[in-house]
Design a protein around this nucleic acid. Structure first.
Lengths: 235, 235
DNA sequence: ATTTATTTATGACTAAAATCATTGTTTAAT
DNA sequence: ATTAAACAATGATTTTAGTCATAAATAAAT
């Protein structure tokens, strides 16, 4: 399932400076280094599963991960995406509930597990961390609620344009100017909340309209302003 | 807009014992009493508006409130409902953003405003409050994400059944066994994420199927198990 | 009490997106 | 290199839910 290897060192982790753990004390960083348990996950592997009890949080050192909920007929709804520097699994841990979603690896990942005990100790002794956690949760909540409204009110085409803009921002671009990720049409469908065929059709439309370029799983945004107009984002 | 009157006393507020402020110290309760500013709002009035900058949080002493986002063509998407004991406006305040939703009164309300300064002081000095705030945000997030998945995957009929069960739990029942609230079909539509006409039709269907009884704005759940089956809730 | 406005109800029609079916293409496995 | 499996593309059809229109019923206002 997961292979042991030489753990990344928190003190040297550049991602950490951009996440909730950026203000840990030297002592706390050392403790995290001692207590954490890092693993390599291959594409397709599950980090945690809907319904399971959380035992800590996961800090992503490398890789691309999706968090999704599984609906009635096994269809995934992707709730969030995560990449290096992102922390996972805090929602369920903090609220003392079971995981409400599953975290699966989209591109090979190195993930550090920080045990519950350690995380809560930090949370109780470092008020900056708890402030940052509240801000993170607040941000996630805003995001989820906005998507909820979009899903209820916007047509698929607009949500698709929005999703492409989001993916472009989230993953950044590679040397060719394409979105720096290989995402299947099915995953895109599960982000947007539509059928895979509909996703394929709309992407083809966008291509015909010269808004994007397609090359296999690679998507390049050609006309950013046009996409924004298509998405009807005015804020 | 809002009329001044004799403020409710926090120390005597029974609702407070069930919300995030339940563990404030006596000194903090007294401070809250001094600093807070309570108002009476009539049905239809706005407590805060999407896009405005938060200046504190609102604690509902009495009344029914909806928080919604306004979409492109002015259609409301109701994100959350609130009643006595609920706290409002914390998400935007904590994340330092503008309000992402509007809070409007559905039934005449008494609402206490707690200034930002006071709230943050409590948050920084009372670790139990910050824990509870994190739990509240986590819970809200779970709720929002589950609704997101439902909206993407469940047909209107199922979501409607689910909404009725939620409303029944949230507002409780009156002497006649009906949901203890008068909600317009339009508001129900804006909770479920559908058109008002569709809401009316599905409620009529539920009535024909003896799942509910309708009398004007009053809705009584007749067959709870049947509704749960209709909603396809298995957890 | 009567008028006006709002809300609820119902029918007819349209549009959007899902589903089903099939073929082509890429990617992975042997 | 060849086969198998997974993924992408496209067409045809169906289903779902939205929109428009109009009438009945409630609720609010004068």
């Amino acid at each position: 399932m997961k292979s042991q290897f030489e753990n990344p060192v928190c003190d040297e982790c550049r991602s950490r400076l951009g996440n909730v753990f950026c203000s840990l004390s030297t002592a706390q960083i050392n403790e995290m280094d001692t207590e954490k348990n890092c693993s390599i996950y291959k594409k397709g592997q599950i980090i945690f599963n809907e319904g399971n009890k959380p035992a800590g949080v996961y800090c992503i050192n490398k890789g691309k991960i999706k968090i999704y909920q599984t609906g009635e007929e096994g269809k995934e709804q992707i709730l969030r995406l995560a990449k290096e520097g992102d922390v996972l699994g805090y929602r369920a841990l903090i609220s003392g509930e079971i995981y409400s979603g599953t975290a699966a690896v989209m591109e090979d990942a190195t993930v550090c597990f920080i045990p519950k005990r350690t995380f809560f100790e930090f949370l109780h002794t470092n008020s900056d961390l708890s402030t940052k956690m509240m801000q993170l949760l607040s941000h996630d909540l805003r995001e989820a609620e906005s998507r909820l409204t979009g899903l209820a009110q916007k047509p698929v085409r607009e949500r698709m344009a929005e999703a492409l803009i989001m993916l472009n921002e989230f993953y950044g671009i590679d040397n060719d100017g394409a979105i720096n990720a290989s995402i299947s049409r099915e995953d895109i469908a599960n982000i947007v909340g539509t059928a895979t065929e509909t996703t394929i059709r709309i992407l083809s439309d966008f291509k015909s309209e010269k808004l994007i370029e397609l090359a296999g799983k690679k998507i390049k945004i050609n006309n950013h302003k046009g996409l924004i107009r298509t998405a009807h984002i005015f804020d």
